[in-house]
Protein backbone atom coordinates (compact mmCIF):
# COMPACT_ATOMS: atom_id res chain seq x y z
CA UNK A 1 0.00 0.00 0.00
CA UNK A 2 0.94 3.60 -0.45
CA UNK A 3 3.17 2.56 -3.31
CA UNK A 4 3.41 5.61 -5.55
CA UNK A 5 1.35 5.22 -8.70
CA UNK A 6 3.30 4.88 -11.92
CA UNK A 7 3.92 8.39 -13.32
CA UNK A 8 1.73 8.70 -16.39
CA UNK A 9 4.56 9.32 -18.84
CA UNK A 10 6.35 6.10 -17.85
CA UNK A 11 3.29 3.86 -17.78
CA UNK A 12 3.93 0.74 -19.85
CA UNK A 13 1.07 -0.72 -21.86
CA UNK A 14 0.55 -4.28 -23.01
CA UNK A 15 -1.28 -5.49 -26.09
CA UNK A 16 -4.17 -7.62 -24.86
CA UNK A 17 -4.17 -9.52 -28.13
CA UNK A 18 -0.54 -10.65 -28.35
CA UNK A 19 1.30 -9.51 -25.23
CA UNK A 20 3.61 -6.96 -26.90
CA UNK A 21 4.70 -4.36 -24.33
CA UNK A 22 4.98 -0.71 -25.27
CA UNK A 23 7.63 0.82 -23.01
CA UNK A 24 7.92 4.61 -23.29
CA UNK A 25 11.57 4.31 -22.25
CA UNK A 26 12.21 2.38 -25.48
CA UNK A 27 9.59 3.80 -27.81
CA UNK A 28 8.86 1.90 -31.03
CA UNK A 29 12.03 2.21 -33.11
CA UNK A 30 10.56 0.20 -35.98
CA UNK A 31 7.94 2.88 -36.44
CA UNK A 32 10.24 5.82 -35.70
CA UNK A 33 8.67 6.48 -32.30
CA UNK A 34 11.55 7.87 -30.21
CA UNK A 35 12.29 6.79 -26.65
CA UNK A 36 10.53 8.94 -24.08
CA UNK A 37 7.23 8.99 -25.96
CA UNK A 38 4.34 8.37 -23.53
CA UNK A 39 1.70 5.92 -24.74
CA UNK A 40 -0.85 8.73 -24.88
CA UNK A 41 1.39 10.63 -27.29
CA UNK A 42 1.79 7.87 -29.87
CA UNK A 43 0.96 9.09 -33.37
CA UNK A 44 -2.54 8.72 -34.76
CA UNK A 45 -3.02 5.43 -36.51
CA UNK A 46 -0.33 3.68 -34.47
CA UNK A 47 -1.02 -0.03 -34.11
CA UNK A 48 0.61 -2.92 -32.28
CA UNK A 49 3.89 -3.56 -34.13
CA UNK A 50 3.50 -7.31 -33.63
CA UNK A 51 -0.14 -8.11 -34.28
CA UNK A 52 -1.49 -4.84 -35.77
CA UNK A 53 -4.47 -4.37 -33.47
CA UNK A 54 -5.45 -0.81 -32.61
CA UNK A 55 -4.46 1.17 -29.58
CA UNK A 56 -7.78 0.48 -27.85
CA UNK A 57 -6.59 -3.10 -27.36
CA UNK A 58 -3.78 -1.94 -25.06
CA UNK A 59 -4.02 -2.21 -21.30
CA UNK A 60 -1.90 -0.52 -18.64
CA UNK A 61 0.73 -3.07 -17.57
CA UNK A 62 1.86 -2.15 -14.08
Amino acid sequence: MNRPQQPLAQQRYICANCGYIYDPAIGDPMNHVPPGTPFEMLPEGWVCPVCYVGRDQFDPLD
Binding site: R3, A16, C18, G19, D59, P60, L61
Partner: peptide, 21 residues
Protein backbone atom coordinates in the same frame (compact mmCIF):
# COMPACT_ATOMS: atom_id res chain seq x y z
CA UNK B 1 1.09 -20.16 -22.92
CA UNK B 2 0.94 -16.39 -23.40
CA UNK B 3 -0.92 -15.72 -20.17
CA UNK B 4 -1.13 -11.97 -20.78
CA UNK B 5 -2.98 -12.53 -24.03
CA UNK B 6 -5.14 -15.20 -22.37
CA UNK B 7 -6.12 -13.15 -19.34
CA UNK B 8 -6.42 -9.71 -20.88
CA UNK B 9 -7.32 -10.59 -24.46
CA UNK B 10 -9.20 -13.88 -24.70
CA UNK B 11 -10.79 -13.68 -21.25
CA UNK B 12 -11.25 -9.93 -21.02
CA UNK B 13 -9.67 -9.50 -17.61
CA UNK B 14 -8.24 -6.09 -18.42
CA UNK B 15 -6.66 -3.85 -15.88
CA UNK B 16 -8.18 -0.77 -17.59
CA UNK B 17 -8.92 1.77 -14.89
CA UNK B 18 -8.01 -0.41 -11.93
CA UNK B 19 -5.15 0.51 -9.63
CA UNK B 20 -2.25 -1.91 -10.10
CA UNK B 21 -2.77 -3.50 -6.67
Amino acid sequence: VNTEALFRGRWGYRRAKLPAE
